[in-house]
Simulated assay, not measured.
Amino acid sequence: MTYSGSTKKSNVLIIIPAYNEGENIKNIVEELRSGYPQYDYVVINDGSSDDTGKILREQGYNHVTCPINLGIGGAIQTGYQYAKEKGYDVAVQLDGDGQHDPAYIGDIVQPILDDEADYVIGSRFVNKEGFQSSVTRRIGIRFLSALITVLCLRKIKDVTSGFRAVNKFFINAFASSYPIDYPEPEAIMDAVMRRKRIMELPVVMRERETGTSSINLRRSVYYMIKVTLDIIVCRISYGIRR
């Protein structure tokens, strides 16, 4: 890994995983720096093949460059390793495609600062405002939500939301181990099974302005099968450990 180096000035770190987000990353970082300077941030350049790395270097943005593409799970885990190494108390995941509105960072961080939650999910489905994703994806999200409800007796509406904040317990846990492929539902499942305090708060998400999602129809089918199996295996493994 290549670290850009930074001075810690906050107890809250914004982790921004970025893979080929050259068209978006400058806007995202500048929005954070100008509108929310009270938070530290780090961009995880996940082996991008476009000009993402060049932009990060030229603009002097705080970032970590992965020598190869680790995938979303590996990139986020790298962010948590950085947060652990620097001693942050709270970490927030913010996607590098611009869909997560930083105006809601304070909302999802505050319950952790107030010691009311360990894990806070920014959910687009609580108030059902803003960009709601495609019909196909919403069906998949409802299925995974129902699966977690049946297996754990805990209802989480937006199980695929990557907009979330966690406390130091999860910073340390995720720095050591984090799901690799499409990790959001699996990470939530892990938090539920650990019997931690999980809170789901309403946010309004934005539609991606530029670039394209890496999840096509074929990957969506793979996603559903893999995550379903992983969730079931995770539930069984926790049952065996008890």
Rank of each mutant, 00 (worst) to 15 (best):
L13C: 01
K9F: 05
F174T: 03
Q132H: 06
I55E: 04
S48V: 04
R194L: 09
T160I: 14
S34F: 11
F125D: 04
P102E: 07
Y61N: 01
A83S: 11
T2F: 14
R164C: 12
S4F: 14
H100N: 15
A175L: 05
R241I: 10
N62T: 14
S49R: 11
A91L: 01
R194V: 02
F170H: 07
L32A: 11
I141T: 10
K157E: 11
I225W: 09
P17W: 02
Y222M: 12
R195N: 15
V204N: 05
D230W: 07
N24L: 10
T2N: 14
N11Q: 12
F163Y: 15
T210D: 07
V42L: 12
R124D: 00
R219G: 09
P37G: 07
N127V: 03
P185G: 02
C66K: 09
E184I: 05
G35C: 03
R208Y: 01
G71L: 00
I68T: 14
D190R: 14
G211F: 03
P17C: 05
N172R: 10
Y238G: 04
Y119H: 10
A18C: 00
Y41W: 09
K86S: 04
D50E: 08
T210Q: 13
N167K: 07
I14W: 07
D118Y: 01
V29K: 06
L153R: 15
F131R: 01
L147Q: 04
D101G: 02
L217H: 13
S134T: 15
G35K: 11
E129M: 12
V64Y: 11
G162K: 04
V120R: 05
V221P: 03
T65V: 12
T65C: 10
R219V: 02
V64Q: 05
R235M: 06
Q59K: 14
K155V: 07
I148E: 09
Q38C: 01
G162N: 07
G87D: 02
V150H: 07
S145L: 05
V42T: 12
V227C: 08
I68E: 13
G98A: 04
V192A: 02
L113R: 11
A146F: 15
V159N: 00
I55W: 06
S6G: 09
K157P: 05
L153W: 09
I188Y: 09
G130D: 02
I225M: 08
G73N: 00
G96H: 09
K168H: 13
G87E: 08
A83K: 06
Q99G: 13
K9E: 11
S10Q: 01
D95G: 12
F170Y: 15
I232C: 06
I105K: 06
H63A: 11
G74D: 00
P185N: 06
A18F: 06
D158I: 05
V90M: 00
V233R: 11
G162I: 03
E31L: 09
L201S: 08
R206C: 00
Y82A: 09
G22Q: 07
Y119T: 05
Y36D: 03
V92F: 04
P67D: 12
G35T: 00
S145I: 03
L144V: 00
V203W: 01
V12I: 11
E184Q: 14
V166M: 10
I76C: 08
V159F: 00
M1E: 09
F174R: 02
